[in-house]
């Protein structure tokens, strides 16, 4: 069986590095991006199982990523991470069919559990 492919988008390099290190321990194939444009370009070439994206980013933000992914690649689940525990963004994300929604600081175990659920639900 092929490795599940996870994409992580966050403008904090440490988040990308740690997510990659930790998720690779679970046997996933992880690719990270510091901003959304190259990430969306990559999605056109390759299919990913789960996209973990930060909400607030320069240029294209997490909400745009979520909407693009859910409409263009319905197979791919999106988990959103945000520094703002803001009800309005949470509702907007839910409407755009987000798989899960995490406030910072992120508990990696919970993130992993959420990714597993996303893969299992497929």
């Amino acid at each position: 069986m092929d490795k599940h492919k996870i994409m992580v988008i966050d403008d904090e390099k440490i988040v990308c590095d740690m997510a990659k290190l930790s998720l690779e321990q679970e046997g996933y194939e992880v690719e990270t991006f510091l901003n959304a444009e190259p990430a969306l370009a990559k999605l056109k070439e390759e299919k990913f199982d789960v996209v973990v994206t930060d909400y607030k980013m320069k240029g294209i933000d997490g909400m745009d990523v979520l909407k693009t992914v859910r409409t263009s690649y319905p197979e791919t689940k999106v988990i959103m991470i945000t520094a703002f525990a803001n009800l309005e963004t949470a509702i907007e994300a839910l409407r755009a069919d987000v798989h899960d929604f995490f406030p910072k600081p992120v508990k990696i175990k919970e993130l992993k559990a959420s990714i597993e659920r996303a893969l299992g639900a497929k």
Binding site: V15, M18, S22, F84, P105, K107, I108
Partner: peptide, 21 residues
């Protein structure tokens, strides 16, 4: 407070990964 969230999150993730690995 908002500006602090990112470094706090970074430290948290560094610590969690550090323990795990």
């Amino acid at each position: 407070a908002h500006e602090l969230t990112n470094p706090v999150n970074n430290i948290s993730m560094l610590a969690q990964t550090y323990i795990e690995l």
